[in-house]
Nucleic acid binder design. Sequence first.
DNA 1: TGCAGGCAAATTGTCAACAATTTATGGGTA
DNA 2: TACCCATAAATTGTTGACAATTTGCCTGCA
Lengths: 245, 245
Amino acid sequence: MASAATIANSSTAKTHMAEAPMTEEDVCAHVRDSVLERRLAPGTKLTEESLCSIFGVGRTTVRRAFLLLKRDNIVDLHRNRGAVVASPTPAEARDVFESRRMIEHALLQQAASTIAPASITALEDHLEQERTALTAGDVGRWIRLTGDFHLHLARLAGNRVMLEFLKQLVFQTSLIVALYGPSNNGSNCSGGDHAKIVAAMRDGDLSSAQDILDSHLREIEAQLEFNKPEKQNDLVSAFAPMRSA
Amino acid sequence: MASAATIANSSTAKTHMAEAPMTEEDVCAHVRDSVLERRLAPGTKLTEESLCSIFGVGRTTVRRAFLLLKRDNIVDLHRNRGAVVASPTPAEARDVFESRRMIEHALLQQAASTIAPASITALEDHLEQERTALTAGDVGRWIRLTGDFHLHLARLAGNRVMLEFLKQLVFQTSLIVALYGPSNNGSNCSGGDHAKIVAAMRDGDLSSAQDILDSHLREIEAQLEFNKPEKQNDLVSAFAPMRSA
DNA sequence: TGCAGGCAAATTGTCAACAATTTATGGGTA
DNA sequence: TACCCATAAATTGTTGACAATTTGCCTGCA
């Protein structure tokens, strides 16, 4: 145990740098990112000691992070039993996808009313990045980008509150797909749908964009199989390839 | 200081009862309720010592509660400066109301698809409770009920995730109205609108219900005045008339 | 072998003392 | 009076030790 491979400040080995200590938000961000890129599987036990040594922070910080992650349904906390990466139930999965359809439908409408040509260009750039990551075989990055696409759409609506809500749902979706997603392939957010949505938005065809987004989400949900075994991950390797917040 | 008037277990003075200690969720619930009923004004400083003695818990618990309340935008935390009841900016207020329109619009549609006669009856019961509280002059209870009405509607949609989101927005709304609401009267959620919504739902007229709900929220938002002084509350009295969670 | 009981190790929960920072107070001077 | 600076008080942040609980392991017995 206690592999002192701290991720924090891994580059500034022992210089005179200020060594800004990680906060609970930083730990949360790392865990969230690991969940998003499927390096942390649902059901994985997260001990305080592990995260302390991995991130080089005290128990207090890890403890606070757990509290916040629980609030976001990313971990489950059981008294005297510690933290476990959450395993959404099929019922919760249904609610998450239904919520995403409602929220993204509404956000698309809002975005369409004030969209600028530059925003369309930015979306097309994002599509290009998705393709690049996919052809390069960087699965983790590709998974992250497909999630970010939906957040990009949401940002166009200019509503911070809704954006935060959708963020939570994207993380939940990652857990759900990790649990119940099709194991044969890794493609659940097919790039084609994303491109079609951007095209519809560029043409000013809101209802088409909404329809495509809706069926896009329904399709992913339909591919879920609610009878699969769980996995377990190694913590250190799961957190290792992390970029700074 | 340190008025040892603990709210927790106020009835079981010193009996042999188990004296279940309050958890951070309990403290959160109390603060949220106080915000909801306008006994805690935005800008009020919440010191750890105060809440410790009021609720009879240790600093650890209060600290955890602060963290969760910050996550919900109910308090602001500044390092070394403690917790303050949040004061949403006009921009945030705009986002909150826009979010409520989006979310409640979608939830109403969802609810309409599977609504049962019994649910309508329950809604009408709620309307009656609102009227009773209003005529009885129990303003705190009435304010809470007007908020609960919207949550009742949301519950009909059967989506826990969206219900939680709306809960957060209702609390935010309470802060916003406390800050910028019309000071001349106390009526911002006029009972008439609520009754009209229920009537439309009973008649199976979804779009009417949606329209009324939409304009209902727009009306409240339009009444906001974004140039008012803040208030400050006494903590003990603010938390005193609390019912158990 | 299979299982119940109990001991030991590991993990989590709690608390109090101490450190760091901010806020309040009280002269002293222009 | 108004302002500034130094000191004191109050509040928040952190750490470590200790308590409570769970978990794994090992023995003993049927």
